[in-house]
Design a protein around this nucleic acid. Sequence first.
DNA 1: CTGAAAGCGCTAACAA
DNA 2: TTGTTAGCGCTTTCAG
Lengths: 352, 352
Amino acid sequence: MDTEKKVTINDVAKAAGVSKGTVDRVLHNRGEVSERSRARIMQVIEQLGYSPNMHASLLASRKNYRIVCIIPEFHNGEFWELTEKGIEYGREYAERYGITVEAVMYDQYDLESFQKACAEVLEDCPSGVVIAPMFRNETLKFAKELHAMGVPYVYIDSKIEEDDYFAYYGMPMYQSGYLCADILTLERKIERIHIIRIERDKRGLSDPTVTRRTGFLDYIAEHYPDCTVDNTFIDPKDKAARFAKLDELFASDPDPYKYIVMFNSRVHFVADYLRAKNITTCRVVGFDVLDRNLALLREGFVQALIAQRSDKQTAAAITAITDYLIMHTVPAKKDNYTHMDIINRYNCDYYL
Amino acid sequence: MDTEKKVTINDVAKAAGVSKGTVDRVLHNRGEVSERSRARIMQVIEQLGYSPNMHASLLASRKNYRIVCIIPEFHNGEFWELTEKGIEYGREYAERYGITVEAVMYDQYDLESFQKACAEVLEDCPSGVVIAPMFRNETLKFAKELHAMGVPYVYIDSKIEEDDYFAYYGMPMYQSGYLCADILTLERKIERIHIIRIERDKRGLSDPTVTRRTGFLDYIAEHYPDCTVDNTFIDPKDKAARFAKLDELFASDPDPYKYIVMFNSRVHFVADYLRAKNITTCRVVGFDVLDRNLALLREGFVQALIAQRSDKQTAAAITAITDYLIMHTVPAKKDNYTHMDIINRYNCDYYL
DNA sequence: CTGAAAGCGCTAACAA
DNA sequence: TTGTTAGCGCTTTCAG
């Protein structure tokens, strides 16, 4: 069933007429080997089909690998909490191989805080990094430095287009918007849609959901060219203002059955309003399985959520680096667009 | 960051005033140790917070663990193919720890073939087994024997209710039917539904989708008490007969927009018909992401599929046993009801 | 019942 | 440039 009974480094050494020390040297190409021996050994390795025993290696080497994850800081119940849980999972795996995993957080609304985080990470040169980027240019600079240092880095959630990243794990944003439109409209003839958006106080911050919105609007344009799409901006920090805005919205649209969508994880802002007013005649679709969203989904104030398993993605990112570190394997695919899950009240209980 | 710098078996031995041989004996409680030493050692282990180094252990021990998976045999493109891919994934993981994984197949329509498979497995007493059961009583008997031999076994896909299984990974069947009804009806007022079923030639075989159908019918009864539900039986082996049956169905229902559902993975039988006749005015929902189903989903002859990741489930089953074998850990949950994925043409490309 | 000792396959420091 | 050697932490004889 398995190939010949385990070729060891000793077998290779013998067959090549050198000592295992030399073999080890070429294995980890840390020089000090004549080209002649090197070639010979490589050939023997090939012939014998030698592959190193990772347990022996792990046991003997006192290497201290460290993976660091750079993600936005968050409060309980927010989107990034799931990512942190993913770090947990990933850590569990990595620790088996003596690799430590740590998280460095930054304020996603504060460029300087991100810079600081990056600098800090570069400082103590980790063996690998996982990064959820929010600032394009800064990230690019950071990436360049990591690459120069030979540190593999993988993007999660979103990525910056360049060539050197080790892998990417995240949701296809445009498609998620397209899908969202399909879920919202339920193939009905629909005349008006309300998009609820977050008032962004700080300017200069790119909206991470803009691509998603584009996908959504494209679907609508293709399938319901006559449909009106309204945008309503709400303040995440001011509930009264939010309610006022939504009062306005409800006053302005005479149709009692409304179609409402939000492109980030905070559809609970809308659903909270609906619950407060006990309005049950809307179709509300949003993103991400936060506890609050989930509760409102169960209660019927949100009809569907489109979700990604950020925890699994993050764990996969850590696993990928770990495997690279200990076995020099690279992920099957560099870009891993994870699936978009459609969650409604009938399947949500089995989701997390 | 980590606890004190690695307590080894030597530290324990020293602290307990014995040799590491003795410590090892109590660690694997293979007797031959005085109660006195035993207690002492246990106490020291506790105190020092010793935990074994799995790599050293794996390196030193010449143990030969073997996991065997018992699943139905299949043709290309059929449901169980995905499970086999899961075995592949699981094997990849297990092999790192020197554990081999093999598959034993049986004919799901032939009790004897299942019995033979079980007997064969019992014969060469494996270290763990994964089983996708189709025959209740036989499985029960088999399980009893495994338990007697101290071999952990985990169910996948479906389980037989009893207490001794190590874990279960599968879809919640009833809920999947309930969900399916919601997806099929799209919250519309709907008057008639066609269930397509497989004519079962062999009697005595339990229908694995009966629970799912119950869930479906319950949803319909609750939400659309006036809706008519028709059953049409088709022959999986006879295309002409199938087409005739479906011709009949289409002749009998005057409504051009039809709601059609199938509870197993073979919704492609229906969709093939629709494509042949170029009928695009139906809403067709089925289960499982087979290549054929996927193609028909993309072409628009199937509107949605409800799916489970049988590959991941199987891999998880193998992983669970592996971890148990090498680290004596048990899965967090014994019953793992995996999520039900809703797949339509807009998210299917990112599913597998 | 217990201890001593020889590895498991690999790494890394030290000689040569 | 290369070979030698002493472990890494644990398992497993084999004496006693």
